[in-house]
Design a protein around this nucleic acid. Sequence first.
DNA 1: TTGCTCCTCACGTCACGTGAGGTGGC
DNA 2: TTGCTCCTCACGTCACGTGAGGTGGC
Lengths: 271, 271
Amino acid sequence: MGSLLMIGEFSRMTHLSVKALRHYDDVGLLKPAGVDPGSGYRLYSVAQIPAAQVIRRFRDLDMPIDQIKEVLVTEDPNTRDKVILQHLGNMQAKLDQTQSTIASLRALLEGGASGRVEHRQIPSSTALAIRARVGWDDAEGWLGTVFEALHAALERYGLTRSGPDGALYSDAFFEAHDGEVVAFTPTSTAAGVDDRTLIAHVPGGLYVVMMHEGPFAGIDTTYGAAGSYVTEQAIAAPGPIRENYVVSGFETDDPAALRTEVCWPIQVPRS
Amino acid sequence: MGSLLMIGEFSRMTHLSVKALRHYDDVGLLKPAGVDPGSGYRLYSVAQIPAAQVIRRFRDLDMPIDQIKEVLVTEDPNTRDKVILQHLGNMQAKLDQTQSTIASLRALLEGGASGRVEHRQIPSSTALAIRARVGWDDAEGWLGTVFEALHAALERYGLTRSGPDGALYSDAFFEAHDGEVVAFTPTSTAAGVDDRTLIAHVPGGLYVVMMHEGPFAGIDTTYGAAGSYVTEQAIAAPGPIRENYVVSGFETDDPAALRTEVCWPIQVPRS
DNA sequence: TTGCTCCTCACGTCACGTGAGGTGGC
DNA sequence: TTGCTCCTCACGTCACGTGAGGTGGC
């Protein structure tokens, strides 16, 4: 129980480097069981080995130190294991996305089939919507929860969806990877909706529309194609970019079956 | 061809942030096609979009900028695609290791069955060996290539292996994640080996030996168990830690079937 | 006394992000 | 003229790694 180890021995037993161990002490992630008052030597207990092993694994998975701290402060073992397993779920999701990034890279190298460009006048519509400042990496998760909330609200008010879910993206969202996003579910009427903040008017306009087929990891290729077209035609117009989720994760579990319309605002042609 | 874009437009089309684009300009990863002499504005060409897409994917996969540069300077498209695919192979391997880290974390939470401890007098032996300073992350790859070289040498000299491959690890390898490692293939005789640098004497000694079952991602648990035992018995001795690859990647493709003996040096008991 | 292991600053690294303060064209 | 988009420093962040310079016990 009380066997104490010097930092080098503890390092060999846990495979954490000495520098890392000192850092974990500094930031309060893993404090040594004791400190020699005379020499200042850190003294670790063999009982700290399991905690060190958990830390090492999470760091291997690039979990931030603060998050690991949250996991480890949970004293009750059952609760703690649940927290860990939940984090593992997130890791797995990240991993799946990495897989999909690799796939999209392969696809890119094999030459992406650029889709067809369509000019479309999108009419304005009434919708239930939620607007927020969203960070780039949180966007996919945010959209998922928000659309679930919007669909639940639709049902609650006895309304029906009059078209695919969609979202408007501010320039800052792309340029600073952090900006306003409006997620909306169109509906023919918002009668009876008492929460006024949910009701929104989604402005229409003239857009170049391209269909993106497959997961979001590769959607930048469609953005590139649409943007190139708009640039070469010199018809770009200001305003948010719009995505329509024609076939979304609510309709299919097969990532390859996803269909997203990328809508790039363009000028009304001069007569 | 010549359509030029301001940095914000290029950001929206490539999904790279403006800050990232400026950084890639600074470090020479992606220079804008032109710069406005009056304003200093960066001007990108639509022809640069594919390069930006490749960069974005590799960065999503955490490939260092310098490596991406190496990939992109390869002008010939065929060679370049081969280089990229090779890097993708590495990525896939890292991903598989992440999977295995997750698995070992789950195993850890379900309570690892700590193996049996054996005291063993390991005799000294002659061996073909390669010694080098190795970085932590390179170790597994280094061992693979080195053992292939050693086996090839054995065959070349008409010798036979007299025991499992093994390696000696300096303290610095664990404590600084960068230190001396000796990989060796034991052989009863080194007669006829003209490359003297290959011949080594692997010293024997008294060790505590524990068998690690499964992939290397979880081997720290066995280190922890062996180290705890040695500490609690107060029998630790100086000297490198030794691993014997009883069932290695050369013998099986199933990670769960791997068997590695972790040998921790201990003192000769006093009469 | 020599070596060994440990200690504490202070600074470097990598890939950007975060402001501050300022400029040019519609 | 106001806004907008862009510009360049300079510094911050995260998780350590890299020395420099120094101390205590066998």
